[in-house]
Design a protein around this nucleic acid. Structure first.
Lengths: 181, 181
DNA sequence: TATAACATGTAACTAGTTACATGATTGG
DNA sequence: CCAATCATGTAACTAGTTACATGTTATA
């Protein structure tokens, strides 16, 4: 699936693996992320399949850049994926819930400490979506004419992050209250 | 991490790989899951490390069962993991959000169909947590004396699933309303 | 003077999925 | 009679992480 994230971004313009990593870190991080090394490997495979092509752009003083561009095949593949319906649910993995499930013997104080720390982390993440991420979305919106349609959708994904973290904090408060008698 | 799910369940009693799969499917599915083959492989590795031991229980008419039990080392490893604080956040992957992010060109009707289908799926999942999962938790609670502490925590993980799906449906409604003008 | 940013990549490894292989019993 | 349940495992593969390797330039 990283494949489609890369094709999707390259559809906005040619980019290097390094730039793709940066843009993912500031936009899709919330629901899709990848390590730099995985991005380079995936781009290589996409080029072998003919979905992207790369050109080396020589630079002085710093390493040469390998700039990737979508091919027609890549654009088509992307479009097919975009319109294909998703008919099942993603399964999640939550370390905290797994740990909580088996925590009966761990002592109330340890457990409450764990939950309070999580509350802090999720509260921070919530604030991040409300300020930093919001600014990124609005930044894109203001400088890019003709991307109004896109911005509505980007804002929807940001909003998901915000609502998720709000829910998480509410659940933690509820759970802490139930344990802290 | 599947490691700790398996150790955690074996802490309640000896079990086969097949039974571990079944119990995971009805209890931790919401936040941790695994395929049968992965469970068998992981149990094998855990036995090599001395965290569990297995014994073959011959059966007639059906395949022999390999019953796993926690060792002292396994119990200790589990306990250390349970009390260790989680200091960072899990990252999620949501196919729907990734697709939505790149869907500006896909046409409003395709997009709305996608979102309405998702709404149906998440509504179903919500109902599942409210009825089937609720019944499982209450079932464990009623037959098992001495597991009151555990049941409170299991209910908390069920409640997370419920709140997550409620949030998801709310977000879908909000997003659909914003697009369907 | 150190470290962050720029820039690319490979190798080894861990985790997880899909497909294959086998075969009896029970319930509808 | 067909599907589900019981029951275990291997092999091949895909996805993702961690560690290694290199080297300049701008900035604090």
């Amino acid at each position: 699936m990283l494949k489609y994230a890369l094709l999707g971004f390259l559809n906005y313009g040619d980019m290097t693996g390094y730039e793709l990593k940066q843009i993912m870190d500031t936009s899709t991080q919330n629901f899709w992320h990848a390590k730099q090394s995985q991005i380079y490997m995936t781009l290589k495979k996409l080029e072998e399949k003919g979905l992207v092509i790369s050109e080396i752009e020589p630079q002085e003083g710093r390493p040469d850049r390998r700039v990737y561009a979508l091919t027609d095949g890549g654009r088509e593949d992307l479009h097919e994926w975009v319109i294909a319906p998703i008919t099942d649910l993603d399964s999640r993995k939550e370390r905290l819930l797994l740990k909580l499930f088996f925590s009966a013997s761990s002592g109330k104080e340890t457990l409450l400490m764990q939950l309070r720390l999580q509350r802090e982390l999720h509260q921070q993440q919530l604030a991040h979506y409300q300020t930093a991420t919001k600014a990124v979305v609005q930044g894109f919106a203001s400088i890019q004419p003709g991307l109004e349609e896109d911005v509505v959708l980007w804002e929807a994904t940001r909003r998901f992050g915000e609502m998720f973290e709000e829910m998480y904090v509410r659940w933690l408060d509820e759970t802490i209250a139930r344990l802290d008698v």
